[in-house]
């Protein structure tokens, strides 16, 4: 067997019970060209340091648990291959723009509130009545929103968004893209309700179209595009309500 190649992971450590400042800890891990960064972190957890704390589950890029900063870029660590960094060291940090719970684990509280705020569900009166069979939806109607329904809530986009880093009122890329996804769904009747939320304060207007959310999205959702489209819809609605203050609730289709 050939001498085992290794590489170095520099991992962000922070423990809320004992630390006031974060630090970096270097670990030497075996190098395997099939390994992803997550495999290396799991190897450390299993064999070297059981105190290292991170989230993961599906390791196939769809559960959205294992987003971290890898050499400064927000990445799903299950899709970041060691071979793309070897032999240089890899620096792993928790996603920026989120409070850190411990080590590589960040708090989702703010994100979950924003997700809930955009009412990401079908709103219509007969939504629980299945007697008439499925609502018809043509493939073209499906295509109008499908891309925006692919979000896995991995929150890489929030880590890439400088506005999300300092503007709490801003709902952020993933939540807005999901709101837009339901607004574009031919089965939905809730656009006016959602626009009430999106029009408020910096909720949507905080976006300055930096575009990095789209650049880092592992599922090609294009939240930046969704937000610009949603802004156009919101602007039309704003002026419509301005022009017709009464009875302007229905935003139409």
């Amino acid at each position: 067997m050939p001498a085992e190649q290794t590489m170095t992971l520099e991992i962000f450590r922070y423990h809320p019970e004992t630390d006031s400042e974060p630090r970096f800890q270097a670990y030497e891990v075996p190098y395997d060209e099939d390994w992803v960064v997550l495999d290396a972190i799991n190897w450390i957890k299993d064999h070297v340091d059981g105190t290292l704390t991170h989230r993961w589950s599906c390791r196939m890029g769809v559960c959205g648990s294992c987003g971290m900063m890898v050499n400064g870029d927000p990445k799903l660590t299950c899709a970041a291959f060691l071979k793309d960094y070897y032999p240089r060291p890899v620096k792993v940090e928790p996603l920026v723009n989120f409070p850190v719970e411990r080590d590589l684990v960040v708090s989702l509280d703010g994100f979950m509130e924003k997700l809930e705020a955009v009412k990401p569900y079908i709103i219509r009166d007969d939504v629980n009545d299945t007697s008439g069979g499925e609502y018809l939806q043509s493939p073209a109607e499906l295509a109008r929103y499908k891309q925006y329904s692919m979000c896995i809530n991995c929150m890489l986009c929030y880590a890439a968004c400088p506005v999300a880093g300092h503007e709490d009122e801003f709902l952020g890329p993933a939540a807005l893209a999901l709101g837009h996804r339901y607004n574009r769904d031919s089965r939905d009747r809730g656009r006016a309700e959602r626009l009430d939320v999106m029009l408020a304060g910096e909720a949507i207007w905080g976006c300055t179209f930096v575009g990095e959310c789209t650049a880092v999205c592992p599922k090609h959702v294009d939240p930046a595009g969704a937000i610009q489209q949603a802004k156009a819809v919101a602007a039309q609605e704003y002026f419509r309500r301005f022009a017709m203050p009464r009875g302007a609730k229905d935003a139409g289709a």
């Binding site: 809320p16 630390d19 400064g72 920026v96 409070p99 850190v100 400088p162 880093g165 930096v210």
Partner: peptide
């Protein structure tokens, strides 16, 4: 000490080419 909050750097625009 609880959750760690990491404020954004004022020179945030230097952090990514984008």
């Amino acid at each position: 000490s609880g959750r760690l909050h990491r404020p954004q750097r004022w020179a945030w625009f230097l952090e990514r080419p984008g």
